[in-house]
Amino acid sequence: MIDALSYGLMGLGVVFWFWGTWPLLGHRSVLYKLHSLSVSDTLGSMAVIVGLLLKIPKEWPLLVLALISLAIWNTVLGYVLAYCSTEGGGND
């Protein structure tokens, strides 16, 4: 049961990865790609880590730390990239 759930979460994470990374190859704006990357790299990766957490519950402190820092860093990086890529053009 737990095993199935864990594989399910990892599978979901991988699906998110593919869905969110695919638009990277297209010709959309940086901000549009950033939206889909936040689906794949933040939410998808969080799902993968929760899947791993169910597999090895005894390492929970480190994995919880990984989960929290992943969410925070990725979100902040998204904000910094959005801010820097729009400010640099000098159109403000």
Binding site: W17, T21, L24, D41, S45, L70, L77, L81
Partner: peptide
């Protein structure tokens, strides 16, 4: 900036 996006994505994916 597109390159930076790709790098950010690579960084997260490799650590996972």
């Amino acid at each position: 900036w597109q390159k930076m996006l790709a790098f950010a994505s690579i960084a997260t994916k490799t650590s996972i």
